[in-house]
């Protein structure tokens, strides 16, 4: 059975199904239930946007509110994972990674290799990413390139409710640490989502639109901008293929290269800042492996090299637009 579900509800359902299926799955984070220790209602919040609302009622002590001590509880989730649990730790805004990064990149990411392959750390660290919420410089970043840079971390960023559920279940069942990036401006987006549990393997890009004359590679919210651009370009008889990376580490460069070999043109879109971005990575790889197929220089459409501005007037300029993406393709086709 499939229903039209929001990405927010799809994420809630994924966690619920896995907690029901596997008692070693636990959920922790700040206000993920909410109301702990007070005299009002318990499960008062379900996270600041209500994503985990209702899970405490079903799974009680396996849904744990935490003090505002990310180093400690993210680290504890990682430690518990190394000891046979499957914790899902919510970092609310992934910008807060700053205060607990050591536990993630020096500990979780390195155990497996550093210990000669003998450790497994099946932890999921999930949280919000992305701009467009007028949430300003410290609550709006797309830090995916930072996470992707680190060997040992898997990095996921879904663009829709269907993928979010399948990729999150895969993340929970996966035996490596996963950084699961949820774009806050996609929580309300709806898709057909089966009620059953299902998984989407990592390292498999999706192709939400097929085309012959140019390839736009994107992930997260930018997939929607890319599709919008493709729609506009179709009216101009430019037939664009859109590749949704979904998983940034591992990354499905095969699909990107296959597409570029067909179209000869590549625009890589990234909501992250330009330097050392996913877009830069995709372009470098595609240029190296599909150089002969290229009919025009690849173009990266990214945020500018600035922090995320607060003012709506600036933030709207900051986020790559469908118009900028379409222009890039036009330039290549000309």
């Amino acid at each position: 059975m499939a229903r039209n579900l929001s990405m927010k509800d799809a994420i809630n359902e994924a966690i619920d199904l896995e907690m029901t299926r596997d008692p070693s799955v636990i959920l922790m984070g700040e206000d993920i239930a909410g109301g702990s220790g007070g005299q009002g209602e318990m499960d008062a919040w379900g996270g600041p946007l209500g994503v985990t609302k209702g899970l405490w009622g079903k799974h009680k002590e396996r849904v744990m509110d935490t003090p505002l001590s990310e180093s400690a509880f993210i680290g504890a989730a990682i430690g518990a994972a190394a000891c046979g649990m499957r914790p899902i730790a919510e970092l609310m805004f992934l910008d807060f990674m700053g205060v607990c990064f050591d536990q993630i990149f020096n500990q979780a990411a390195k155990f497996k290799y550093m210990f000669g392959g003998k450790a497994e750390t099946p932890v999921v660290i999930r949280g919000m990413v992305g701009a467009g919420f007028r949430a300003a410089a410290q609550h709006s970043q797309m830090l995916t390139p930072l996470f992707t840079h680190i060997p040992g971390l898997k990095v996921i960023c879904p663009s829709n409710a269907y993928d979010a559920k399948g990729l999150l279940i895969q993340s929970i069942r996966d035996n490596d640490p996963v950084i699961f990036c949820e774009h806050k401006n996609l929580y309300a987006s709806m898709a057909d989502v089966p009620a059953e549990a299902y998984t989407i393997p990592f390292g498999e890009a999706a192709i939400p639109r097929e085309g012959k004359s140019a390839t736009i590679v994107a992930y997260g919210l930018m997939v929607h901008r890319a599709l919008e651009a493709a729609e506009t370009l179709a009216k101009e008889k430019i037939d664009v293929e859109v590749v949704d990376l979904r998983s940034l580490s591992p990354i499905d460069m095969d699909t990107v290269i296959e597409s570029v070999e067909k179209t000869g043109r590549l625009v890589a879109v990234d909501e992250a800042n330009p330097r050392c971005s996913i877009a830069a990575d995709v372009i470098a790889s595609a240029t190296e492996h599909a150089f002969k197929a290229l009919k025009a220089a690849p173009i990266a459409i990214t945020a500018p090299h600035t922090p995320v501005p607060f003012s709506a007037a600036l933030e709207d300029l900051y986020i790559p637009s469908a118009a900028r993406i379409a222009d890039a393709v036009r330039k290549q086709v000309k």
């Binding site: 700040e30 206000d31 909410g34 702990s36 220790g37 007070g38 919040w45 600041p48 003090p67 505002l68």
Partner: peptide, 12 residues
């Protein structure tokens, strides 16, 4: 007394 919705009685 509160951090978001969480009481200090829980967190301290």
């Amino acid at each position: 007394g509160y951090a978001e919705s969480t009481s200090i009685d829980y967190a301290l």
